[in-house]
Every structure is written in C-alpha cells, then in structure tokens.
Design a protein around this nucleic acid. Sequence first.
DNA 1: AGGCATGAGTGGTCTGACCACATTCAAAAA
DNA 2: TTTTTGAATGTGGTCAGACCACTCATGCCT
Lengths: 217, 217
Amino acid sequence: MNQPKRYLDIVLDIRKMIQQENLRPGDRIPSERELAERLEVGRSTVREALRSLELLGLIETRRGEGTFLSDHRNHRLVEVLSTFILQDNQSQNDVRETRLIHELAALKAICRNDVSSRLLVWDSFRSRLAEGSSFHREDFVKEMMVLSGNRLSLKIWFLLQQYSGKPFDGVVTEDEKEMINRILTAIEQQQTDTAIKEYMAWCDLLQKGRMQNDDNS
Amino acid sequence: MNQPKRYLDIVLDIRKMIQQENLRPGDRIPSERELAERLEVGRSTVREALRSLELLGLIETRRGEGTFLSDHRNHRLVEVLSTFILQDNQSQNDVRETRLIHELAALKAICRNDVSSRLLVWDSFRSRLAEGSSFHREDFVKEMMVLSGNRLSLKIWFLLQQYSGKPFDGVVTEDEKEMINRILTAIEQQQTDTAIKEYMAWCDLLQKGRMQNDDNS
DNA sequence: AGGCATGAGTGGTCTGACCACATTCAAAAA
DNA sequence: TTTTTGAATGTGGTCAGACCACTCATGCCT
C-alpha cells in the first residue's frame, strides 16, 4: 500500500490555510519552520510542497523575508516552466487558442450587457486615444476581461496569458490605436460581430509583429 | 552574485539530461542519490526539483523502484491550478457560464473544421438516434469537446463540468433526441450559428429540468 | 521445482546544522 | 539631539546523515 504522498497533503493544507485566513496576493504566508510545526511534518516536506507551488508561480519566496502569495506580476518563473511543459507546438497553440476563446467570450458578454455601467472605463481609453497618450495593451485587454463580469473566466485568462509568453507586452502603436478605436465603437453600438472581427484583426497584427521579433532575435 | 534557486537549475539539468540521453516516457531516470552526486548538490535539493516535476505530472515516482518519465502530454498543470482557481469561486453561475464558453467554442471549431475525418463519430450518435437506442448526455458533449482538437480546452471543460454538479448527468430523453438531431445536422452543414442556437436551446432545456428536480427534492 | 529469507537499492521523511540575506533596534558616534 | 553602526533575530537555501517502507533479485532451504 502506497500511502498518499505527504507533500501533496501539504499542498492542500496550504491551500486551505490561504482560504481560511483569506490571504490575498502579496500577503505573507507562515514561515517554513512554523508551517512544519503547525502541520506536524518535517521542514523538508514543507519545502517540497512550497517548491512545487513556486514552480507553478503560485507563491514567491524571498530569502531573508519569507514566502508570499504571488501577485501575478512575475512571469519569469512561469516562462521557465512553459518551456518545459509547452514544448510542442500543439500545446502552445492550444494555450493561444484557449486564451482567445475567453477573450472573445468576454467581448460578447460586454456587447450584450448594459452600456451605462462600463462607459466610464472605456472613456478612459477613448480619451487616451484622442489625446495621443499611450497605454499598455495588457491593460486594455485585462479591463475587457474584468468588464465581462465572469471572474472565473478572468482568472483562467490571466493564467493563460502568463503561460503564452506576454502576448500583449508593450504599448500600443499608432496603427493599433486606429483598430482599438474601431473595437470600442463596435462595443458601444453593441455590434458583437464587428467587435469580434476587429478584435481578431488586432490579434493577427500582434501575432505577426511577434513573429518578426522572433526572426530578428 | 550567488544565484539562488538552485533547484530551478536542477529542473533544467534534468530536462537537459532527458534530451541528451534521449529518454522516453516510461523510462527510468537516475536515482535521487545518483543525481545528487552527478550534479554535485544535496539530495534534498534534487528532491525539491523532482517533487515540482511530479506535481506537474511530468515524472512519476514509485517507492522502492525509482523515478520514471511520464508522458509530457499528460501534464497535470490544469488540475493543480484549478484547485487554486476554483477555491473561492462559489459563484456557480461563473462556472456554468465558463463551461458554456468552452462548449460553444468547441462547437465553432468543429463547424469550421473539415467534416470528413470526424464523420464516423457523429454517425455513431446518429445511428443511435435513428434506431431508438439511448446514450448519456455527457458522452455526447465530451465527444464534442474532444473533436474540437483543443486538448487544453478539453481539460478545462472537464474540470468545470465536475465542479458544476453533473450538468449532463443521465441519458437523453425523446425530446432531446430531436434537438440533438438538429445540432448534428447543423454541424454537418457547417451552419455555425444554427448549431450554437440549437445547442443553447438544449442547455436551457436541461437547466429547466434541473431546476424542477431541485424543487422536488 | 517451488517457496522463502535476506540484502541491496530506492523513494519518503525527519533532524540538525550551517550559510546568505533582510529586518529590527539598541548602542555608539556624530 | 540626530545619525550611523552593528549585533541579534528570523527567514529561506542547502547539505549531510539517519531512519523507515517498499521493491526486486539473489540464493538458500524445503
């Protein structure tokens, strides 16, 4: 009889602890020594669980300070991991496709919803487009995901976005501003199909730019 | 100066070792003690790396036997992350919505793809519809997700389906057979919008039946 | 030939000991 | 007084050694 691996229990225990104490990203979790004592296991076992979670990008450890819930801002570790898991093209393509699935669903949801509540946020981007100032692509897409109202979809999207290698890294160019303007217009007029079409056109543009970058490097 | 996170290097070293020695899924990798000696690190450090890979489903350990490579395509990344994503999401509505997002995306993908290769599978359901025999709802939807070709989406869907309380439990009724027939027809004729409309009608029917069940109990 | 005991090898776990680093705070210096 | 210094403390990172539980192969005994 193989008894279940202890470190797996620790993973679940830590998850439960996070839930019970309502810890949020950036918060500190108990030290390894304290966890070992509380859970009545050796420190090495606790470490095996923590290392696993760290490789997943769920926690972040800083020597001399402690262990913290990852605030989802560091994609570094995740990238190392994705080179391991997502080696084959099929997997990479799946991640990209699935991410797009959630984005388009969010777009649909926004177009279907009431306009009034979200007007303020879009106006923020609109004005930035008008006055020529710039913004990060990721901020725009993330706002879109938030406005969809589906928090689960937002969470899944955020992870996929991390694992697909900064697809929206950087600030928008002049050409893109034009496209985003059209997307916003379509959303405001609740023309779902147009919005989706324009959005996919934007994604294609980004994809091409990304491939050119890869060639250069 | 000192690069912390030695176990991360071990992860990469192991990956390199796998590539160099051309190890395939099922093969045995060196023991923890041998790895520690070869890589000139402590055994606990090796173990931290191995536990991380095990949590992801990249390797499999059997006490008394050794550590073996598992098929990288069966990685458990999604499962592990789900325990953290779904932990606080008590919003059953989000789960249902997100599941539907993936189902509709699969439906779209199937309609977009070439029909010929997957005709056999649909014919299986078709004939069962024709000859009056029945089948489980879940089998039908799962086949649909598989045929979408996106394995990641399939994995996410499977988890969501588990978390949303057996939405497709049971066998199809006579009324539903009619609807499924229309769905299949729309798919074969690659009429995406019709297929989606019919599918959502079916889902609505299931939802209503479920609510009635809840009232009875 | 078949069954059984033994030992070597392996992963699973714990302990204790260092190290490197960050923070804190009281003592020393300005 | 204010500023600087440095020792104390707590943290993660690593290592070595020791057991335990388990598997498997060897070879011995019946």
